[in-house]
């Protein structure tokens, strides 16, 4: 339902004349087209982790940069871009030493 709420917010804000861009994870990607969300970046990340894994600042920046670029490059509703990068937890924890 979160994505319905934000889909509605995006439509209302856009109707008020402000451009929007929405970042969502792939499990909810169908909403972008279905609700005619103006601009959407979809990431192949698990639910609740739209911009990247905790402390994966480079991925978070990459996703945000794609979203910001889409603000200017999109020309019609709906414009949907799916990023191909896979989710990558930042640290592989290995506790036992040789």
């Amino acid at each position: 339902m979160c994505h319905v709420s934000v889909g509605h917010a995006a439509r209302l804000i856009e109707e008020a004349g402000l451009p929007t861009v929405t970042v969502m994870t792939r499990p909810f990607g169908f909403r972008a087209e279905g609700m005619k969300v103006p601009r959407t970046v979809i990431t192949r990340h698990p639910m609740g982790r739209p911009l990247g894994a905790p402390h994966d600042a480079p991925r978070q920046r990459q996703v945000l940069r794609a979203a910001l670029d889409l603000l200017g490059s999109a020309t019609a509703n709906p414009t949907v871009v799916e990023l191909p990068e896979l989710y990558r937890p930042k640290v592989l924890k290995v506790t036992s030493e040789d």
Binding site: V6, L18, T20, T25, P50, L51
Partner: peptide
């Protein structure tokens, strides 16, 4: 709420909004 929020963002002179659902 949605229309009121849109008005708020316009009053605050936003040029664009980034939205993140989860």
């Amino acid at each position: 709420e949605g229309p009121a929020w849109a008005e708020l963002f316009r009053d605050e002179r936003a040029d664009a909004m980034l939205l993140v659902p989860v």
